[in-house]
């Protein structure tokens, strides 16, 4: 099993440390060639700035091929900015979400939903299928509305902060900033299930 990690900006190295601890092979995706010359079984979209990643995905010609892979059923785990890249729409966003972001997951996300840095926080929360885990929210979004096919997996103060739709898993918080590997294990199980279904 090999995991691709979008490494154009943000906290991708932290996801790499998590995968190393789990003994999983990974590769960084920084340019179009990385998609052509290699194959991987799952994709991580890390935390960082979603506007930067959206722009770089286009400038580096990663957007269309990656979107096709995602639509084709590639398991994807998006944290924070990764959640925003996957959301079908973003509240109060300028421009067309479908042009700038993947917009593959049927939900409305709210960017900087807890305000600026002084609104960042952490707590221990419950995630369905994962259990009690530390959740770190950094200028985080939350999910304001879900489509029918999307299952909410965690709530904090009445707001949805983790969800799944088929091959897509998103968290508004950052499991990669903690020592707890449970969410990564959950995602790797999704990847394993897909690999088995393909064989």
């Amino acid at each position: 099993m090999k995991i691709g990690i979008l490494a154009v900006q943000g906290a991708f190295a932290e996801h790499e440390r998590c995968l190393e601890k789990l003994g999983i092979t990974f590769m960084e995706i920084r340019k179009a060639e990385d998609l052509q010359n290699h194959s991987f079984d799952g994709l991580i979209l890390p935390g960082g700035e979603s506007t930067v990643m959206g722009k770089l995905l286009h400038d580096l010609e990663l957007f269309e091929p990656m979107k096709a892979m995602i639509k084709n059923g590639l398991p994807v785990f998006g944290t924070c900015a990764g959640l925003l890249l996957l959301a079908k729409s973003i509240e109060n966003a300028e421009g067309n979400q479908e042009d700038s972001h993947f917009a593959c997951m049927d939900m409305v996300a709210k960017r900087n939903a807890y305000g600026r840095q002084l609104g960042s926080f952490s707590l221990i929360g419950e995630m369905e299928g994962v259990g009690k885990i530390p959740m770190v929210f950094i200028r985080a979004p939350y999910i304001a509305a879900l489509g029918k096919g999307v299952t909410p997996l965690a709530e904090v103060e009445g707001k949805i902060v983790a969800a799944r739709e088929g091959n897509l898993l998103v968290t508004a918080f950052h499991p990669e900033l903690t020592e707890n590997l449970a969410v990564h294990k959950y995602f790797l199980q999704m990847v394993e299930n897909r690999r088995e279904s393909l064989h």
Binding site: S120, S122, V136, I138
Partner: peptide, 18 residues
């Protein structure tokens, strides 16, 4: 202590950026 961690975390999100 927790605040300081969160503040270091924000810098981690800026990595690889301008």
């Amino acid at each position: 202590e927790n605040r300081y961690e969160l503040n270091k975390n924000l810098a981690q999100m800026l990595k690889g950026g301008v």
